[in-house]
Write a protein that binds this DNA or RNA. Structure first.
Length: 225
DNA sequence: AGCCCGATGTCCT
DNA sequence: GGACATCGGGCTA
């Protein structure tokens, strides 16, 4: 373990400051820990079959570090039909089904055959809010939907944007159904970032406390504060 | 504000 | 049979 791989309790390394480049396409082929931070502030766009556009600003992400990461679906080299997309090229969508009823959306990072990815945990909705509310309300009984209930969780945002396994394996760099727009350029302001342990991975022993979750400090759309 | 629980497909032992 | 990268409802304070 070098300084890059801090111990279980250490703070995870942050993005190094770099030159500001004009509207470069997102580089997905980097370590998931770095991509997780770079994705914050970018916009996830979903275009439905009828042409309507749903979008949200990414405000919360988690990095999953692959074969060595006890919390990752690919831990120990696990490779099944379900997680096959994680082994594809960076920029591929990995959409999985969990708890018998929910979908979660990930962006594949790293190299081909290196099963690392970034889980998108929350969005600040920016386009198509009414349609999102319809998608979200169909799975509820009565309580009114606040704007901060639309996409403030990994399964909520999949409901809102109508993301399911049909989009698993989609190439985010060429798809016209789901893609990421570069709405933030250059390194993110470090002071606006919060770096915490991941959610829902208590079972992962020494990997449970690793700070591989990032969110935008002032956002009201984060899943857990 | 918390805690508990049911929903239930897919993968694991 | 049990666990799970979750959510919403119903309960106790």
């Amino acid at each position: 373990m070098t300084g890059r791989d801090a111990g279980p309790t250490g703070e995870e390394p942050r993005l190094a400051p770099g030159p500001l480049l004009c509207m470069m396409p997102l580089a997905f082929d980097q370590p998931s820990r770095e991509l997780a931070q770079e994705l914050l502030g970018q916009t996830l766009v979903r275009v439905l079959d009828d042409g309507s556009r749903l979008a949200g600003r990414i405000v919360e992400t988690e990095a999953y570090l692959g074969v060595k990461d006890k919390a990752a679906h690919a831990f120990g080299g696990r490779r099944t039909q379900r997680n096959e997309s994680m082994y594809a090229r960076a920029g591929t969508a990995y959409v999985y089904f969990t708890y018998g009823m929910h979908h979660c959306f990930n962006v594949v990072a790293g190299e081909v055959d290196e099963p690392v990815a970034v889980l998108i945990r929350a969005l600040e909705p920016t386009e198509g809010l009414e349609r999102m509310a319809v998608h979200r309300a169909s799975n509820r009984r009565s309580s009114p939907l606040k704007e901060t209930d639309l996409c403030s969780g990994p399964a909520k945002l999949c409901q809102a944007l109508a993301i399911d396994r049909e989009l698993d394996g989609e190439d985010l760099t060429s798809s016209d159904r789901i893609f990421i727009e570069t709405t933030r350029q250059g390194p993110i302001e470090l002071a606006t970032l919060v770096n915490r342990a991941r959610i829902g991975v208590d079972y992962a022993e020494d990997w449970a406390q690793r700070r591989l979750r990032w969110y935008i400090r002032e956002s009201a759309h984060v899943s857990v504060r």
